[in-house]
Design a protein around this nucleic acid. Sequence first.
DNA 1: TTTGGTATAATTGTATACAATTCTGAAAGG
DNA 2: CCTTTCAGAATTGTATACAATTATACCAAA
Lengths: 214, 214
Amino acid sequence: MEHRTVSLAEQVFERLENEILSGKFPRGAVMTEMNLVSELGVSRTPIREAIHRLEQEHIIETTTKGILILGVTKKDLRDIFEIRMRIEGLAAAEAAKRITDEELAELRESLELQEFYVPKNDPEHVRGMDSLFHRLIYRFSGNTALSDALLPLHKKVMKYRLASVSNHSRASSSAAEHRKIFEAIAHHDPAAAEASMVEHIKNAMEHILKETNE
Amino acid sequence: MEHRTVSLAEQVFERLENEILSGKFPRGAVMTEMNLVSELGVSRTPIREAIHRLEQEHIIETTTKGILILGVTKKDLRDIFEIRMRIEGLAAAEAAKRITDEELAELRESLELQEFYVPKNDPEHVRGMDSLFHRLIYRFSGNTALSDALLPLHKKVMKYRLASVSNHSRASSSAAEHRKIFEAIAHHDPAAAEASMVEHIKNAMEHILKETNE
DNA sequence: TTTGGTATAATTGTATACAATTCTGAAAGG
DNA sequence: CCTTTCAGAATTGTATACAATTATACCAAA
């Protein structure tokens, strides 16, 4: 088969991760590698690679009967926010210390796009820009271990975040909170960046846990 | 080939991870899948699976020229401790809340073995029991996301931890600090467990960063 | 009816063959 | 002497064949 710059394994991983974390496959469902071979039209090799990555993130489990979907429970959600409350502020503080002008421009663009989509009532795009904003801060923190720790936690909230920003009032508040974080980072003020990020995570947690019934 | 309860891929992963994190392969070294095929006597399939797991943990990188060893730098070490300072106390607190008697017995045994090996000047065994103590607390926290976040951070300190506990005075203090954490967990006192764990991580960090020259 | 066993099917683990890209070095031309 | 080009080697990505285990279904016997 012809070679691609993005490997099939990577494509399969992203597709499966997205489908599982967005709730397309329910918790408890079982599939097999051969199911995926038929559905996705690629061989077992890239599928197995994707499966192993998902297993490492505890999103699925492989059993003798096939691949068991675990997904993300409400307890996982509480556990995740308890961790993010403690370390996502650190990411914002570090980003405030070391961000470059080019990086700041990238962060600003994601924020302004989020602010653009909020009044349009476009939850999918709002969520996309919301996620990008957080991921950029992870990256710009310059702390690889921190980014590695936060990224999987952030991804696992994906489904619940969409529900959250579908509430227009919350989407609006969230954008305002991002604006505050951005200004602190832009002024290279670590303490303010950390405080506003912690406040933001706290608000997001409260809203998501309140809205979620599972 | 005959089937094993522990897959070849898992064995290869653990061996390579251990060898890289213990410093057997220096940062910057390059190897290829075929090198490992010759050395380890298994086919590319399990080797590739192990390689991908190591890549996901940012311990190695795959390039067009082969597998590049990244290992753990002193900056990584500082970054890691900054995170552990913030969340490892949470693990201790959660463990104090929910630990069972059986789990407590397991934790006690790892502690007593550590205390047994310290006066024998046996750094390898001391480190082994030291690591086990922390990993048990991660597990007993009942917070999978937290355990998933902490375990890779903990593993990356392996090499430096051996140097640290090779100092008899530090090994002795470390065991005493573990004893304090254990007592707090045994008394189901989350606040005391968290405080003593944070203190312990802080001491470990100071000692390791002082001793490490890279 | 229930239980036990056996053959078959289903599933993952492993090895290997093949495809496509990229690196390397040497030769040719300026 | 330097640059460019081209062929071959080295490397990873992918597909597929094979091995071993485990699940399943059916049949027979108590």
